[in-house]
């Protein structure tokens, strides 16, 4: 589904990603771990198409298309979803209104009729149950005055509504207490199918207790320096990132 080959990316002439290689197949969950500043969030942003980053080298193929050729909205309509580390506030726009606009543009892209109010509400209700989110939150202005947990839960709700093929969770666990973490992870797990894939970007092993990955990759200094299965995450937790740092230097 996704194939990243020798990906290099910079921001303001500073190279952050220095040759990433990664392949993700349908049904898989990949965890990308690494210390602060290793390039985890950059990778997530580049895949979603944030314009601040310049791809200087490499290739990303997604569903047999050159992903880097697509505008951010086209990537989204093709099924890429980024759960933001810091969800953005949009005053005066409710989550409901926001999602309705998004879904109908995605449906149009896929040659489907726009949702009418009734079927949209029905869809909302189902997904609200799935991620255990309250109606009152959805009629409030998007992310405005939301607590950290509410913001992340809202991201997962949006993910449920948009039904992406490839979800990228960027540090979704940051700022969450254990209960919120469980609810969020629970939502993500429920959305998993054999046809979609998830990339979980995280600093801590904690989230991976709830979202169990098939593969774990350690990102350090712009490169994937180690890949393994879920046991690698435990090893990392135990030995700390210094272990990786020492290993790469040596």
């Amino acid at each position: 589904m996704l194939k990243i080959e020798d990906l290099h990316a910079s921001i303001e002439d500073k190279e952050i990603l220095k040759g990433i290689n990664l392949e993700v197949k349908p049904g898989e969950v990949h965890a990308i771990m690494g210390p602060n500043g290793s390039g985890k969030s950059t990778l997530a942003s580049v895949l979603a198409g944030r314009e601040d980053y310049e791809v200087t080298k490499g290739k990303v193929t997604y569903k047999e298309q050159d992903l880097l050729d697509l505008a951010p909205e086209e990537r989204a309509r093709e099924g890429i979803f980024l759960a933001f580390q810091y969800p953005v506030e949009i005053p005066g726009v409710s989550t409901t209104n926001f999602l309705k606009t998004a879904i109908n543009q995605i449906r149009e892209h896929r040659g489907l009729e726009p949702f009418d109010a009734v079927s949209f509400l029905k869809e909302m209700k189902e997904k609200m149950k799935l991620v255990d989110i309250d109606q009152s939150l959805l009629s409030r202005a998007l992310n405005e005055g939301f607590s950290g947990g509410e913001k992340k839960r809202n991201e997962v709700f949006q993910m449920a509504m948009l039904e992406p093929t490839l979800s990228i969770l960027d540090e979704t666990d940051s700022g969450l207490d254990i209960d919120a973490l469980r609810i969020v992870a629970d939502g993500v797990n429920k959305l998993k199918t054999k046809d979609n894939a998830t990339i979980v970007v995280t600093h801590y092993q904690r989230l991976l207790e709830y979202i169990v990955p098939d593969y774990v990759h350690v990102l350090y200094n712009g490169r994937i320096v180690k890949s393994g299965t879920k046991e690698l995450a435990l090893e990392l937790e135990e030995k700390g990132y210094d272990w990786i740092k020492e290993k790469t230097i040596a």
Binding site: E51, E73, L82, F84, E89, L99, A102
Partner: peptide
């Protein structure tokens, strides 16, 4: 804000 919207397909 704009990126947040475009990332959702808008």
């Amino acid at each position: 804000q704009i990126f947040y919207c475009t990332q959702r397909g808008i």
